[in-house]
């Protein structure tokens, strides 16, 4: 897959950091403002997609990127499951909000609501990895091309 013209490359170079930052903001403030793990994860995947479309897949080296995408996907789903099992370790039910019982925090602040921000982060990592892996596999690889 070839890259695009110089104009597209420069504009995407300007846009990608701010899109990435917006994605992180949306994930971290998911329990306070609209958004959350799903929206932020798709934003982060979208900024990688923009890079691949603008610069072409040769520059981004699809093999390394795909391995990292599937790794982050597995890491995210494992983190989410681990946070759910923490409740069982405590001796309570699955998805028990263990941190909120120890230190509830003030509602409306960034550090509040227990495991919900951590779950948001796990879901963000998982969704970003999954969608970028889907895009790399579907759109970039040609028939007969090796990964």
């Amino acid at each position: 897959m070839k890259g695009m013209t110089l104009i597209v490359k420069q504009i995407s170079q300007l846009m990608v950091p701010s899109i990435f930052l917006l994605g992180i903001y949306v994930i971290l403030h998911g329990h306070l403002t609209p958004g959350g793990g799903f929206a932020g994860g798709i934003l982060i995947a979208g900024c990688f997609v923009l890079l691949v479309l603008a610069y072409g897949s040769d520059e981004v080296k699809s093999e390394v990127r795909k391995w990292r995408a599937s790794f982050s996907e597995s890491l995210g789903i494992f983190m989410f499951w681990f946070l759910a099992v923490l409740g069982l370790v405590q001796g309570s039910y699955f998805f028990y909000n263990i941190i909120a019982k120890i230190n509830p925090g003030h509602p409306g602040q960034l550090f509040s609501a227990g495991i919900i921000p951590l779950c948001n982060m796990a879901i963000g990592i998982e969704v970003a990895g999954a969608l970028f892996a889907i895009f790399i596999t579907l759109a970039v690889l040609k028939a007969g091309e090796k990964l």
Partner: peptide, 24 residues
């Protein structure tokens, strides 16, 4: 609906990959 939208993207991509493979 929030979860359904994201699942929809995943299943649509799976369908498209089947279609591309059949075309090959």
């Amino acid at each position: 609906v929030l979860t359904a939208i994201v699942i929809g993207l995943g299943t649509t991509a799976l369908l498209v990959s089947f279609a591309v493979r059949i075309y090959e």
